[in-house]
Design a protein around this nucleic acid. Structure first.
Lengths: 177, 177
DNA sequence: GATCTCATGTAAATTGTTACATGATTTG
DNA sequence: CAAATCATGTAACAATTTACATGAGATC
């Protein structure tokens, strides 16, 4: 679907290896896009075959060759076409809420334990995103301009995680009640 | 993955047809689970073959027979097992944020137009969820207890949509700037 | 007369996950 | 010396989407 476009957007920002992209999916853009490495390497292969990205091989000793991909002219065109095509708001599938929905079949202890576990990962994600925000704020003005749009998506991540935690507090009280 | 469990949870609440389930996925539980009808009918078939749900056929004139599914004992067991197994926090893939991330390749007008479009659907969803909340609040006490957990997930939907709109206001200002 | 709701499916294509596979370098 | 990080992939399987398919009744 749009893993393809997520990769193109990231490569437009800077040439990267599959591994680089993976680090982004696990880190700085993980709050809005996720993928497994197998999927990424496969997609890069396809994008290269389709001529949407270029490949430069950089030999390394003791490690597999580094394969650095970058956006090609047709790739940029394809990306721009996609960007100017309206998309539907994304749908959420959240298994944790499915579990909560059927909460009467669990014990309160189990529910609270799982809520706490999830809370911990969301707190960690929020802290990480706040760190990224700090880095952004310390950037010189022209760099801030450059990253204006990525920063906007970062704000979405931060606001979203805040909301999650706000809800979690409410949910905790309500379950204990 | 857990469409299966989403269906089991909904059938635990009340026996339903595939069509009934679809209405829920498009409506009251759509903010945390989505599926296409083809997927639902397929899954119901499998769940029935595996003995996790029962099937009762109700003839109708002029329409296909209504196929009413309900949770079986092994189904309830399977559901309880799943409920007591920890799951990972869900990952989000949001194509709209991918588009925003590459916003410098679009025009401000296009970005604002798409933001407004998405804003409209989120506003609509929020209004719908607030309506559901009103219905819940007017329930007699024992009914409120029964729907305590579904209500908690509803709160997640409401808080999440609020957060989306809050972010959208910020984003709008920032894009215009 | 067109569109929406009711009500159900099959088949093909695409996408994503899990399992399997390798191997050097760095850090604790 | 164990674990994490770097760095890449194939193959099998599961899940999801898109396209195709039908047809009555209700509403505008």
């Amino acid at each position: 679907m749009s893993l393809k476009h997520a990769i193109l957007v990231l490569l437009d920002e800077e040439p990267s290896t599959g591994y680089d992209l993976m680090r982004k999916f696990k880190g700085s853009v993980g709050y809005f896009w996720n993928a497994k490495h197998q999927q990424v390497y496969l997609q890069l292969k396809k994008l290269n075959e389709d001529g949407l990205i270029h490949l430069a091989i950089q030999a390394q000793s003791g490690k597999p060759d580094k394969k650095i991909y970058s956006l090609s002219a047709p790739g940029k065109q394809a990306l721009c076409n996609w960007l100017s095509t309206p998309i539907e708001p994304s749908k959420t599938n959240d298994a944790f809420l499915v579990k909560l929905y059927g909460g009467h079949l669990s014990s309160k202890e189990e529910l609270l334990a799982e809520l706490a576990r999830h809370r911990a990962t969301h707190t960690k994600t929020l802290d990480y995103l706040l760190g990224l925000e700090q880095s952004y704020r310390q950037l010189p003005a022209h760099q801030k301009d450059k990253y204006q749009y990525p920063y906007l998506t970062l704000r979405k991540g931060i606001i979203g995680e805040h909301a999650w935690l706000e809800w979690a507090d409410e949910a905790k009280k309500e379950i204990k009640k």
